[in-house]
């Protein structure tokens, strides 16, 4: 199934297959996935455990290599890139927010935020940095070490780091998985605003319908395939869609 949208694609996957293991033990984590992630949108990828949503994101982000199929990120085919080029891709065109352990404990919040720029040895765009920091409300936390920040603050620092280098696309892997609901709302609200106000493209893997409700579009995965899609979702509609999938999936 191919998804169709109005906007141009920032990242696409075509007939993406990922097999772990060999022979009778082989597991098809992705089984012919075609997706187009729209530029300037917040896309949520949902699905039950083992549906392949994380694998899809890792392949799209250049963290994992697909067994077959093509991945294009920001106009570049990445499935056959060398490790060196993949590192460059991650350094310059991709931002990450992980579920936990997002920050380098020895660096201050500010140093963590500018880490991708430091790694790439690119100059820091001061105005942009100030804007991101203020938007995330981190101004008075910049000199703190991660250990001195709350979980929500840590995830906000991680978001700032993902955004400050102006990547083509930000991948967020269960960004609120470890947070309480109010911190989650802050982080998700910020991710949505970064799309609406800064024109950032964001892809988020989640299993939480409330989180998915912040997205422009939700893709549903099951057994390594895209099995559904929802535009302008709310938490209720996501729940309904999930319930529908569950019924449909039943033999």
């Amino acid at each position: 199934m191919t998804t169709q949208t109005d906007g141009t694609a920032i990242a696409t996957a075509r007939d993406l297959v990922k097999v772990y293991g060999q022979g009778p033990m082989a597991v098809r984590a992705l089984d012919g996935v075609d997706v187009d992630l729209v530029r300037g949108e917040l896309t949520a990828i949902m699905g039950p455990s083992g549906s392949g949503k994380s694998t899809l994101m890792h392949c799209l982000a250049g963290l994992d290599r697909p067994t077959s199929g093509a991945v294009v990120v920001d106009g570049q085919e990445i499935s056959a890139l060398s490790e060196r080029r993949l590192t460059q891709l991650r350094r310059t065109r991709v931002g990450f927010v992980f579920q936990a352990y997002n920050l380098i404990p020895t660096l201050t919040a500010l140093e963590n935020i500018t880490l991708p720029l430091d790694i790439a040895r690119r100059p820091v765009d001061r105005a942009h940095l100030e804007h991101v920091v203020d938007t995330l409300g981190l101004r008075d936390r910049l000199t703190h070490k991660p250990a001195e920040l709350s979980g929500g603050q840590q995830q906000r620092v991680a978001c700032a780091r993902a955004l400050v280098a102006r990547p083509a696309i930000v991948f967020a892997d269960e960004p609120t998985g470890n947070l309480d609901s109010s911190s989650s709302a802050e982080v998700l609200g910020f991710l949505r605003r970064s799309v609406d106000e800064l024109g950032q493209s964001v892809v988020m893997v989640t299993h939480d319908p409330t989180s998915a409700g912040y997205a422009h579009r939700v893709l549903f995965l099951a057994d390594g395939r895209v099995v559904g899609e929802l535009r302008d979702p709310t938490a209720e509609r996501v729940l309904d869609a999930l319930a529908g999938l569950r019924t449909a999936g039943r033999p």
Partner: peptide
């Protein structure tokens, strides 16, 4: 290990 993974994920090269 995990910290190294993170650094590599955000673009730190092997040589770095």
């Amino acid at each position: 290990t995990r910290e190294i993974g993170l650094l590599r994920a955000v673009g730190l090269g092997r040589l770095q």
